[in-house]
């Protein structure tokens, strides 16, 4: 087990390196530099390049990034907040915490609502409730996140004025409602669908029939026997789900004007703020890759039958 975790950890570091390399070379493949403005002279650009080490060969620059990341230094912003260390922008200005808070709540909401809904649907298979849930979840996975976010915004904030239009830094409970719904709706629906399918699979197994024959109550069958086994495919989905919540946060943060990491990343890409792009990519991919690792290990714990070396879908 320990060996497995170690191996996966090494592989994760490798993936992170590849992501950083891809990002770095893609970023530098674009002609131009972050310092070109309408007024700047070639001398100024050259001076700025020299100041931030952009005149060195690419491979040296890349090495410098890696070395400073190992030392916990994410560099300074080149353009958007020139000269400010990226760690300050991300952590002290609360961007990172904001995104993580939003993402974790959305994740919790999806799991807490989605999985029970799936169970309920599976246990009332063929009933009106099941039919209703099926329609809702099927439509739910076909609505793009930004459409839902905008519709919520227009209905509840602009027309009805129940909720604030700008969620800002999420300082009151009302501000959370719409971002969380928009972030978790798709995932809740998907989880409910997935749980229903795998639950139905589990219910038809022999051991459930045995438990029933022994006179175990329905409630205890669901919780002790069926749910445990039906959670395996659900756990596999958690990895993509976390990535999906980060993706969704790009949209939700710009719709509800939340100054989080997702919005910041999009802006940094559009502004070509190299260090910020690299730093946000580093943080976000480390997060996703780490969560994937956690999911893989959890997967192994839930189902010891899974072989350790490779994960098959």
């Amino acid at each position: 087990m320990l060996l497995y975790i170690l191996k996966r950890l090494l592989a994760s570091v490798g993936t992170l390196l590849v992501v950083l390399a891809i990002t770095f070379f893609l970023m530098n493949a674009v002609p131009g530099s972050p310092f070109i403005t309408e007024k700047s002279t070639p001398e100024q650009i050259a001076a700025a390049n020299a100041k931030y080490g952009l005149d060195k060969p690419l491979i040296v620059q890349f090495k410098n990034y890696l070395v400073s990341y190992c030392q916990g230094d994410l560099g300074v912003s080149l353009k958007m907040q020139e000269g400010t260390p990226v760690t300050d922008i991300m952590f002290h200005q609360g961007k990172f915490q904001l995104s993580i808070k939003l993402g974790l709540i959305a994740l919790l909401v999806s799991v807490i609502i989605g999985i029970p809904l799936g169970c309920i649907a599976a246990y009332n298979r063929g009933s009106g409730l099941d039919g209703f849930l099926r329609v809702v979840t099927t439509v739910g996975v076909a609505i793009p996140g930004f459409v839902l976010a905008t519709l919520l915004l227009v209905t509840f904030a602009v027309k009805l004025q129940w909720l604030p239009t700008i969620s800002g830094s999420l300082d009151n409970v009302k501000a959370y409602i719409m971002p969380i719904i928009s972030l978790s709706f798709y995932n809740t629906c998907y989880l409910a669908k997935l749980t229903r399918t795998s639950m139905l699979d589990a219910i038809n197994q022999d051991y459930i029939r045995t438990a029933r024959a022994k006179g175990v109550t329905t409630k205890s069958i669901v919780i002790k026997h069926a749910l445990r086994n039906s959670l395996i495919p659900v756990i596999t989905f958690l990895g993509p789900l976390i990535a999906g919540i980060i993706t969704g946060s790009f949209v939700v943060e710009s719709t509800f004007s939340i100054p989080g990491l997702g919005k910041y990343f999009v802006q940094s890409v559009l502004n070509r703020d190299y260090t910020v792009i690299m730093a946000t990519t580093f943080v976000l991919s480390a997060l996703v890759i780490f969560m994937n690792l956690v999911v893989d290990i959890a997967y192994k714990i839930v189902d010891p039958r899974i072989t350790l070396s490779s994960r098959e879908d």
Binding site: T15, I246, V288
Partner: peptide
């Protein structure tokens, strides 16, 4: 080949997609 697949699988694709969009535009 499967290690390569796993590697690509764990890349947070949206980050790369956004970068690619900007990078590829002019060329």
């Amino acid at each position: 080949m499967m290690r390569i697949v796993e590697l690509i699988y764990s890349i947070p694709e949206v980050l790369v997609v956004l970068l690619l969009q900007v990078v590829l535009k002019d060329p």
